[in-house]
């Protein structure tokens, strides 16, 4: 099953490679991993999306907890939670018809055009992975110049929190 795990860890050099090393050394799968410092600059927060049987997920959470740099973690999948991902996509727009089409679609998906040049629009879109997939599918693949996705960030709904 797919699991989204939030990890609070010391914002120290090497902490990220410990997590990445753990996943590769033990053969766990990583679909995406995002990390940035929190409002407390001594802590980083990481969101890991992974797949595995219940046994594997149990081992992943135990092994993560065992890392000395990991302060706390929460398997978001165990409760209601929100996931968001950012997509930046650059599209070729040398025909007016394409331009209009693209703007309309961007509106429908509640995205924004954030950069315009002679030949390209760059669009910003956030949402679940599925929504981003749907948007990319809706654009003529011949016109896509490049895409970049941030990987998933997640947070639990309501009172469930991950903090020190």
């Amino acid at each position: 099953m797919r699991h989204t795990i939030s990890v609070l860890l010391e914002n120290e050099a090497g902490a990220l490679s410990r997590v990445a090393g753990l996943f590769s050394a033990r053969g766990y799968n990583i679909e995406s991993l995002t990390v940035a410092p929190t409002e407390d600059p001594s802590l980083s927060r990481m969101t890991i999306v992974t797949h595995g049987s219940d046994n594997v997920i149990e081992q992943i959470t135990k092994q993560l907890n065992k890392l000395v740099d990991v302060v706390k973690l929460l398997d978001l999948t165990e409760g209601a939670h929100i996931e968001r991902e950012l997509l930046l996509i650059k599209v070729n727009v040398n025909q007016v018809a394409v331009c209009d089409d693209l703007k309309r679609m961007t509106d429908i998906f509640r995205g924004r055009v954030i950069d315009v040049s002679d030949s390209c629009y760059t669009i910003e879109l956030t949402g679940t992975g599925d929504k981003l997939d749907a948007f990319i599918k809706a654009v003529n693949p011949k016109l896509i110049v490049e895409t970049v996705r941030s990987g998933v960030s997640g947070i639990a709904r309501g009172n469930r929190t991950l903090r020190t």
Binding site: A13, G14, S17, R18, G21, A25, V68, D69
Partner: peptide, 14 residues
């Protein structure tokens, strides 16, 4: 050294 030993230590520091 920190990189090489990472998978075979409980923890390491630079």
């Amino acid at each position: 050294a920190v990189g090489i030993t990472r998978p075979c230590v409980k923890h390491n520091f630079l």
